[in-house]
């Protein structure tokens, strides 16, 4: 599948923002966050910036961005519409919690429940994002049980990495807890990703050209001549393939950089002083951003679509180049 940068940026940026909201909500409900106005301003500001930038970016790949509001209407049947509705609805408790926190200086009692609602909305939005992909039967590398947990895990992992420097900057006690949540959720996310890669590498020869055209009884079927001499939309959109050797290399780079971010956080939390650990935790944010971009780019580039069977590409090949 064609890896569109607007969609990669949307899923990763909004994903991190929702992860921050999830973590803020959870920690607030647990009574671990002081109603520090500056912290509230920075944390909510950063989360809302990441989410809103992502959502705006997602409209960039539309043929008619001015009609984007229509995408909220079909929530009964469409995961994309459900994602849109969940994203819009989540703004309400988020804004309420942010105002109470920053202006009124309150985040306990009823406001804690509002924050919990915010975390729930964030989680539902990320599940909807994952389901957009996981529900597509023509794309076996998305249509499986790994996709939604991976979207959730990376959302929390990237969101908590973003929150770490904020807690450190303000010298909050919750810094260490945030680091450990980032470390553990990051380890879980990359662990799940390794499992996913193993899963898609094993699922080979899923569907042949002969079966797709219904002529298995005639033997092997090959495309002798394409229907058109140039490319078309289907080939550009569904036929994007990343060479297997490049995919392997990119997987290793993503894993190394993502793992490096986790190690930086552990070092920051355990071994070094206040200035260096702030620098390390900011560096970890950039490393995580790089790693998640590679992870998401591969998620698209490695996905094969059944429509390409008709152009002679079997499903479960992944060995171009």
């Amino acid at each position: 599948m064609h890896p569109a940068y607007s969609v990669i940026f949307f899923t990763t940026s909004s994903g991190a923002g929702y992860g921050m909201l999830g973590l803020l909500g959870g920690l607030t409900l647990a009574g671990r966050l002081p109603p520090n106005s500056v912290f509230g301003l920075l944390a909510f500001g950063l989360a809302l910036f990441l989410i809103t930038a992502g959502l705006l970016s997602s409209t960039l790949h539309l043929g008619h961005p001015e009609r984007a509001w229509r995408a909220l209407s079909q929530w009964r049947s469409s995961w994309l519409a459900r994602e849109g509705v969940a994203a819009v609805v989540t703004y309400a408790p988020t804004m309420a919690a942010a105002v109470a926190w920053v202006i009124l200086g309150r985040n306990t009692g009823a406001w804690g429940l509002v924050a919990a609602g915010m975390a729930l909305g964030a989680a539902i939005t990320v599940v909807c994002t994952g389901m957009i992909y996981a529900s597509l039967k023509p794309i076996p590398r998305w249509n499986n049980g790994w996709v939604v947990p991976i979207y959730l895990a990376f959302s929390l992992a990237t969101g908590s990495v973003c929150l770490v420097p904020v807690t450190r900057l303000l010298g909050l006690e919750v810094f260490h807890l945030t680091v450990w949540i980032a470390v553990i959720s990051g380890a879980i996310a990359w662990g799940l990703k390794l499992g996913y890669w193993r899963h898609i590498d094993r699922a080979r020869g899923l569907m042949t050209v002969a079966r797709a055209v219904g002529m298995e009884h005639l033997g092997e079927v090959r495309q002798l001549e394409g229907p058109h001499s140039g490319a078309n939309f289907v080939m550009r959109e569904m036929g994007y393939r990343v060479a297997r050797k490049h995919a392997r290399k990119l997987r290793r780079i993503g894993l190394t950089v993502g793992g490096g971010a986790i190690i930086m956080l552990i070092v920051a939390a355990l071994f070094v002083g206040p200035v260096v650990d702030l620098g390390l935790s900011i560096l970890a944010v950039f490393a995580t951003a790089t790693a998640i971009f590679i992870e998401r780019w591969l998620f698209f580039a490695e996905a094969e679509h059944s429509a390409m069977l008709y152009y002679g590409q079997g499903l479960g090949q992944n060995d171009a180049g």
Binding site: G63, P65, A71, L80, F233, H305
Partner: peptide
């Protein structure tokens, strides 16, 4: 709206 998701959903 031109989101192209339908084309992804068509096998």
């Amino acid at each position: 709206i031109g989101c192209k998701l339908c084309s992804w959903a068509c096998p």
